[in-house]
Nucleic acid binder design. Structure first.
Length: 118
DNA sequence: GTCGTGACGCCTC
DNA sequence: TGAGGCGCCACGA
């Protein structure tokens, strides 16, 4: 997907921009989809640097928790945005089994599973 | 060239 | 569930 001219950051931006509204995914998943397996930290760095209109609030840690200090302004902003698009945020965390982006292998598997409260 | 740091992730206790 | 440890890569001092 990544042509020779663009940087890993460009690939990351494309992946994040492609996350559907009302869905969330993890840094690791974004990195993998961008062709950068294991570069989760790079994703975080890119999100913090870029000035573009990205749905960065849809990117969470692998356990579904927001990767920002609970008391930071950015944290509150992320929670506000997620709730605005229908994502339930409880104690700074999101249930990936319910809102995870079906693109990832694990996400898809969990999504297809007959949940306890399906 | 090395060290410290970070919007991460997986494993183990 | 939470905390600690180690690995990973990019960057600035």
């Amino acid at each position: 997907m990544m042509s020779a001219t663009d940087t890993p950051a460009d690939a990351i931006v494309r992946v994040v921009a492609a996350i559907p509204r009302g869905r969330v995914t993890s840094y690791g998943a974004v990195a993998a989809r961008a062709g950068l397996p294991g570069r989760a930290r790079l994703v975080g760095r890119v999100l913090g640097e870029t000035e573009q209109d990205l749905p960065w609030q849809r990117v969470l840690r692998s356990d579904g928790r927001i990767a920002l200090p609970p008391r930071s302004a950015a944290f509150r902003e992320q929670v506000r945005r997620l709730r605005a698009e229908g994502v339930t945020v409880t104690a700074g965390r999101v249930d990936l089994r319910r809102f995870g982006w079906g693109g990832g292998d694990l996400d898809a598997a969990l999504w297809a599973m007959p949940g306890p409260r399906a």
